[in-house]
């Protein structure tokens, strides 16, 4: 069954059309990478899945976006509940100015969970899931800002995992990190794939090739091509895709 189904989506910032008639399906427990040059709309697109674009004034969307068969843009949708189901990791590590523990527990607190024992267990699980537990288990009370950039980003992943989402959106999660941290994050994505459906935006084509099952190539607000990653990177059907992945522009 398809986890996410997008049908004929147009998206506007005021009068500017950022996404043009996009349709695609994402299967459960797959990693899908969005690639494309800057300004092609891939970040706008990923933020549609948890309605993060709602925060920007004067934007609107037409078409339908179904997650688990339910249109998330229909009237009366509980956006907070949607965001609990669709976790997100941002481009730059953005931990809260709180302790490591409180950062991970935050999502549980705001979703009304008060059971301390459960929270403690969930924090540990999430940190383990984000491959950070061994590094921070003795200093959970320390400020999250004391961590390195790569650790902070894994903390943000742990924070997203804590609320048990079924989909994980990652908007260029490794672009602000050094190669070693990047490698760790990629390894982590491999692991997470077993339990989550992952949508990742990346600028780094090698990264897309390494970690994703399917790849969508965006250009100027249009989805040019969407196929198995292997095909996109070895035998793309469109010339524009070919040009981009061979580094002729972008």
């Amino acid at each position: 069954m398809n986890k996410i189904e997008v049908k004929n989506v147009d998206f506007y910032y005021g009068n500017f059309q950022a996404l043009k008639n996009i349709s695609l399906e994402i299967e459960e427990n797959k990693v899908v990478a969005f690639i494309g040059p800057s300004g092609c709309g891939k970040s706008t697109f990923i933020r549609i899945f948890n309605r993060m674009n709602d925060l920007i004034p004067e934007t609107h969307l037409t078409g339908t976006v179904n997650i688990d068969g339910i249109d998330i843009y229909q009237k009366g949708t509980n956006v907070d509940a949607l965001r609990k189901k669709v976790g997100m990791v941002f481009q730059r590590p953005n931990p809260f100015p709180k302790s490591i523990f409180d950062n991970v527990a935050y999502g549980l607190y705001v979703n009304g969970i008060k059971d301390k024992k459960y929270i403690k267990q969930k924090v540990e699980e999430s940190l383990q899931g984000a491959a950070l537990w061994d590094e921070v288990k003795d200093e959970l009370k320390k400020s999250a800002f004391a961590l390195s950039g790569g650790q902070q980003q894994r903390l943000c992943i742990a924070r997203a995992l804590a609320i048990s989402p079924s989909i994980l959106l990652m908007d260029e999660p490794a672009s602000a990190l050094d190669p070693i941290s990047t490698a760790k994050i990629e390894e982590l994505i491999w692991e997470l794939k077993k339990t989550y459906t992952i949508v990742i935006v990346t600028h780094n084509m090698q990264q897309a090739a390494r970690i994703s099952d399917k790849t969508a190539y965006f250009y100027l607000g249009e989805m040019i091509e969407y196929d198995d990653t292997k095909i996109i990177f070895t035998n793309p059907k469109k010339e524009s895709t070919q040009n981009y992945i061979t580094g002729r522009f972008g």
Partner: peptide, 25 residues
């Protein structure tokens, strides 16, 4: 903005974001 977005993306409501993130920050 990244703090607010992080809070909202975790399912925090607007008010939870204001009281637990924006005001402490």
């Amino acid at each position: 903005r990244s703090m607010r977005e992080a809070s909202l993306a975790l399912g925090g409501s607007k008010w939870q974001t204001i009281f637990k993130i924006v005001i402490p920050y």
